[in-house]
């Protein structure tokens, strides 16, 4: 981990209009995440954990404030440029795995790469190698809905890693899994992501992961509180 800031969040506010009333999620939020740091975000359901990750990833722009990743103020970018930025620098792991159902396991992994560059033989070899590591060597051509939840989440983690993004955002990655499978997935994330020096923010209910985090935050009163 270096002292350089990978993510800087400055005075970010976000609210939604719900049934005609404005519902404020975050107010004047500030946070700095160093490169290679592993942040865990705790909070009850509906507290805004997913919204926070969406703000960081630029999927959802803030009402005010700035999100700076690798020195780039992504809140100042156009929608198109934000998409291109996300494509290159951010990887997502979702609670519902979110693999593309019409693509095979191998294609799901190759798609983020294809968006960045022309796929080479080496890339294909890397995919096979990575899937072999995850004991998926024989499931390259399987479609996601033929896999169990744990298997799908492992493929989703592999998809994040294959194009080597700077920042990884994980939204309740074990939320849909049983305890044992959840542990395996966290182990995998720890092994493959943290040890590879990636910056990661994980929103979770799991207490297991707290011990592995560099810092732990919870969302209280529309802001982040360190624990």
């Amino acid at each position: 981990m270096t002292t350089e800031a990978a993510i800087t969040i400055q005075r970010v506010s976000k609210s939604y209009l719900e049934s005609g009333r404005r519902h404020e999620i975050f107010s004047e939020l500030d946070l700095q995440v160093r490169r290679g740091e592993f942040i865990v975000l705790l909070g009850r359901s509906g507290s805004g954990k997913s919204t926070f990750l969406n703000l960081v990833s630029s999927i959802d722009p803030p009402d005010s404030g700035k999100v700076i990743i690798n020195g780039v103020n992504i809140t100042g970018l156009s929608e198109h440029d934000r998409t291109l930025f996300r494509r290159h620098h951010i990887g997502f792991v979702f609670q519902s795995y979110n693999l593309i159902p019409t693509l095979t396991v191998a294609e799901n992994l190759l798609l983020p790469l294809e968006l960045i560059k022309r796929i080479t033989r080496k890339d294909r070899e890397n995919v096979v190698e990575l899937l072999a590591k995850l004991n998926f060597a024989d499931r390259l051509d399987s479609y996601p809905d033929r896999l169990s939840g744990g298997e799908q989440q492992r493929v989703a983690i592999a998809r994040v890693l294959i194009h080597d993004p700077d920042v990884i955002l994980a939204d309740e990655p074990t939320g849909n899994l049983d305890l044992d499978t959840g542990k395996q997935v966290l182990e995998l994330l720890d092994t493959l992501v943290t040890k590879a020096g990636k910056t990661m923010i994980m929103a979770t209910h799991s207490q297991e992961v707290i011990g592995k985090a560099d810092r732990v935050f919870s969302i209280q009163n529309r802001t982040l509180v360190s624990r």
Partner: peptide, 15 residues
């Protein structure tokens, strides 16, 4: 719509 959301999240542009 959700599938399209995933594609957008992993970096597919609107175009």
């Amino acid at each position: 719509i959700r599938q399209m959301g995933i594609l957008r999240a992993i970096g597919i542009t609107t175009r």
